[in-house]
């Protein structure tokens, strides 16, 4: 059966890149004796994939991993969460596991948006930037910022740099996680000290996915410059709150990646 694992990754684990994280998960699956389906061939590997790689330095409480299991026993899912949390370290935790129909496309291909909160690291608060923690100020400034006819930023990829209008890809930017929560109608755990409402500068929802992926630091940099404050990426902690796909694969209504229930809605929602 196909499952989607929602997990968090905080603390020192933010220094582990996504390829290493994948290897870490593979070893954890083995140590927990999980009946993971294997690919065929001379060097078989576990069938696993992330919804979207998390950059080094970024933390998350809403990342997703698709996996295929060699069992159809749904009651195993509860045990699996326990077993995995037993072998995972304190800074990477399984939040929830849900079954989806085998034919559901990969989370990576369904992904369309992410929520983030960006906070000012404690040690980085100084005279010049402490204004970033003034909620009223930020709220007012965001209003101006978002009312610009277009927001042009330079996007660098390995091959090229191009200017794009990111305004089209911003769902919202707010001054705190609670404000974002009001907008999205969802609640967040926001498990990090450094992104609590008193330390947060902005909380936002942006377009994500394989065709267009907006990195939150791109917006942060542009916004901070808009405020005439010097920007350094080392000053901020970016924390991913959750990831979404379009309901019915159309733009508009969003659902967290693991809410699509095709097989047996009751059994899954009950726990």
């Amino acid at each position: 059966m196909k499952i989607i694992i929602k997990f968090s990754k905080v603390g020192s684990m933010k220094f582990i890149g996504h390829l290493d994280l994948m290897r870490y998960f593979q070893k954890c699956f083995r140590r927990a004796n999980v009946p993971i389906a294997m690919s065929k061939g001379f060097s078989p590997h576990q069938i696993l994939s992330f919804a979207s790689p998390l950059g080094v330095g970024v933390t998350s409480e809403g990342d997703y991993l698709d996996a295929m299991l060699d069992t159809e026993d749904e009651s195993y899912i509860n045990k699996l969460k326990e077993d995995l949390n037993e072998v995972l370290n304190d800074e990477i935790r399984v939040v929830e596991i849900r079954r989806v129909a085998d034919e559901v496309k990969s989370s990576m291909s369904l992904l369309c948006a992410c929520d983030y909160v960006i906070g000012l690291k404690d040690v980085k608060v100084n005279e010049e930037n402490k204004v970033l923690l003034n909620k009223d100020f930020i709220k007012a400034k965001l209003k101006c910022y978002l009312s610009q006819p277009e927001i042009l930023v330079t996007k660098k990829t390995k091959k090229s740099t191009k200017e794009i209008n990111i305004k089209d890809y911003i769902y919202t930017i707010t001054e705190s996680v609670s404000a974002l929560s009001e907008y999205t109608g969802l609640s967040y755990d926001n498990i990090l000290e450094s992104t609590s409402d008193s330390k947060a500068v902005i909380a936002l929802r942006v377009t994500a996915g394989s065709s267009i992926n907006i990195k939150p630091e791109l917006i942060m940099e542009d916004f901070v410059k808009f405020l005439n404050i010097e920007y350094s990426n080392l000053e901020y902690q970016i924390h991913r709150l959750n990831m979404y796909r379009d309901k019915n694969f159309k733009k508009g209504e969003l659902h967290t990646l693991n809410t699509e229930i095709i097989c047996d809605p009751v059994a899954i929602y009950e726990y």
Partner: peptide, 19 residues
């Protein structure tokens, strides 16, 4: 510090906490 770890190659060399 975060700053140092994010500016060096392979910060995971220095954080310990391995399995």
């Amino acid at each position: 510090s975060d700053d140092i770890l994010l500016s060096v190659e392979k910060p995971a060399r220095y954080i310990g906490n391995e399995v």
